[in-house]
């Protein structure tokens, strides 16, 4: 699968052919940094002064790289496809190599960052449990009622919260049995076939 680059994008990246390869390397580093932490316009201005070009040109260059990296990471394109995709930019062989290196080195992390953007439910983080036996209450004395108190830690968008829940031993066994069925299903022929074929 090849990347389709828009003319505007090509024009923005065209600036990279006019500067030194070391500068491109620096831009690449900044692009990855911005993907991690968000962009910082001051850096554009500083770089623009040094290179004696408008700050906008620098911004376009860096943002063009960021877009190139996110798009290729999103589609998880292969090494070969990446090289073919950037070919249309008319960069030197050395520059192409550098971009490929940049892509391969950061792909995993960028995909990680991108996956945080996808909508998700609260997800499991941890479970703490405690075994209690209720012996008496205000309304009823002489009880022997085993209960399992559980603290379920969930995480959603970086925020953790915990719910305290309770269940009885019989239900606990039922829960385990039911969830184990869920786990076993992943090993079934049906699931394995689908997992194998969707790659």
């Amino acid at each position: 699968m090849l990347l389709v680059l828009s003319d505007e994008h090509k024009e923005h990246l065209g600036f990279l052919t006019e500067v030194d390869t070391a500068v491109v390397g620096e831009f690449g580093r900044i692009a990855v940094e911005f993907l991690r932490k968000g962009s910082n316009p001051k850096i554009y201005e500083g770089a623009a002064r040094k290179l004696d070009v408008p700050a906008e040109t620098v911004q376009h260059g860096v943002e063009g790289l960021m877009y190139l990296l996110t798009e290729s990471s999103k589609l998880m394109i292969s090494e070969m496809d990446f090289q073919d995709s950037v070919l249309v930019l008319g960069f030197s062989q050395e520059l192409n190599e550098r971009l490929l290196q940049l892509y391969l080195e950061n792909r995993k992390e960028i995909r990680q960052i991108l996956s945080e953007l996808s909508p998700s439910l609260p997800h499991y983080h941890n479970l703490e449990w405690r075994l209690d036996v209720q012996l008496a209450s205000r309304a009823l004395r002489h009880q022997v009622k085993p209960t399992v108190t559980m603290k379920l830690h969930l995480e959603s968008g970086g925020i953790r919260n915990a719910r305290v829940l309770q269940t009885d031993p019989a239900t606990l066994l039922h829960l385990i049995q039911e969830l184990e069925r869920g786990l076993a299903e992943l090993k079934s022929n049906h699931c394995r076939r689908i997992l194998r074929n969707i790659k």
């Binding site: 205000r138 309304a139 309770q166 269940t167 239900t171 829960l175 039911e178 699931c191 969707i198």
Partner: peptide, 18 residues
């Protein structure tokens, strides 16, 4: 005024997605 206890889990259902 009877016994208060934390919410009680009564059942679970699950769905497997890819």
């Amino acid at each position: 005024s009877i016994d208060k206890c934390p919410p009680h889990i009564t059942d679970v259902s699950w769905r497997l997605e890819y």
